[in-house]
């Protein structure tokens, strides 16, 4: 196997013929020498990943310790699963699970299909100027910073804001929406869809350009109308893209939205707005309970990772599309 791959390379064939099969060490050194400049390029990259990604993974060990601030990762006393049991038994555990699940569930229900529908609709538009305008305009919210988006939400939902003015016109009283837990998910999910629908549709739109036009002609001969062509040809054609994006979405489910919730929630709405990642933030950064917060964070990461693996496995079984 190794020999055949080596033989494919013309320049190395000559060396092989004269010297016979070189030892592993010799081959290793030759390959290393060949890539020496490339390895040099990789030095800062490898250092970056070691320091800022793999070192923190080692830092997870403090989840199993009573960490004393200011010392190394391995110098505090070990306490086993104490912080995990504390979290699982705490009053907040089920509330956090429920909030995290529900926010992401509704986001998935509304946020995931929205860009697909937009791409399908755009694909039906023949007027190029109109199509281009829709794209340009719906991408814009993606570039507005989170701070500004939340600032706008806050302004529009305030008692003297846009939404309450509309309510006044209809004779309904004004409501300080952001102070009531029951509105939090609606505000969060709808603003998220508003901000991401256009940008997320690009990837589906790109996939749509690869659909074979002959299929449409054949369907037309069979008498299919516009809607049936969309349903039976266009949609199946982008199914692989849909599946891949769905797996990626599921794999990042519990970690997305953290920064937005942090900006948007307040103690009055913790009841529905507080999710695992924001809880980690409050415990760890604000209250310096490093070990406990790391344990909760690790729990979050593990759930995420498990979701990714399950989604990938299911998808591989039923649709032949998978990340690995």
């Amino acid at each position: 196997m190794k020999n055949t791959t080596v033989l494919k390379n013309q320049s190395e064939k000559a060396i092989l013929v004269t010297k016979g099969k070189p030892s592993f060490l010799k081959r290793f050194l030759r390959e290393f020498n060949r890539g020496k400049y490339v390895y040099l390029m990789l030095v800062p990259v490898v250092l970056y990943y070691l320091i800022f990604h793999y070192w923190p993974m080692i830092g997870i060990v403090i989840a199993f310790q009573d960490y004393i601030p200011g010392v190394g990762f391995f110098e505090s006393s070990w306490v086993g699963l104490k912080h995990f049991t504390e979290f699982f038994n705490s009053y907040y555990f089920w509330r956090l699970i429920k909030n995290t699940f529900l926010i992401n569930f509704w986001l998935l229900i509304f946020g995931f299909p929205a860009p697909i529908i937009l791409a399908l609709l755009l694909n039906e538009v023949r007027n190029r100027i109109f199509k281009r305008s829709v794209q340009t305009i719906t991408y814009i919210p993606h570039f507005i910073s989170l701070v500004v988006v939340v600032g706008i939400i806050k302004d529009f939902t305030a008692t003297d804001g846009m939404i309450n003015q509309l309510r006044d016109l209809m004779g309904a009283g004004s409501i300080p929406f952001l102070q009531f837990p029951e509105y939090f998910r609606t505000i969060y999910v709808s603003s998220e869809v508003w901000q991401t629908i256009g940008w997320s549709s690009i990837i589906y739109f790109a996939a749509l350009s690869n659909v074979n036009p002959n299929l449409y002609e054949a369907a037309e001969i069979d008498g299919a109308g516009r809607f049936r062509k969309m349903w039976h040809i266009t949609l199946p054609a982008i199914r692989p893209t849909i599946v891949i994006i769905l797996i990626l979405t599921l794999g990042n489910l519990l970690s997305t939205g953290f920064e937005k919730i942090l900006l948007l929630y307040q103690p009055l709405t913790y009841e529905t707005a507080d999710v695992i990642s924001t809880y980690v933030y409050r415990k760890g950064i604000e209250h310096s309970a490093f070990s406990f917060a790391t344990a909760v964070g690790l729990f979050n990461t593990m759930v995420n990772f498990t979701l990714l693996i399950i989604a990938n496995a299911i998808s591989r079984r039923i649709s032949d599309n998978s990340l690995w």
Binding site: H53, I58, S277
Partner: peptide
């Protein structure tokens, strides 16, 4: 590293 991270707190400490 896109799917598994040390998390907020270890990063903060580093």
């Amino acid at each position: 590293t896109m799917f598994f991270t040390g998390g907020l707190i270890p990063n903060y400490m580093i």
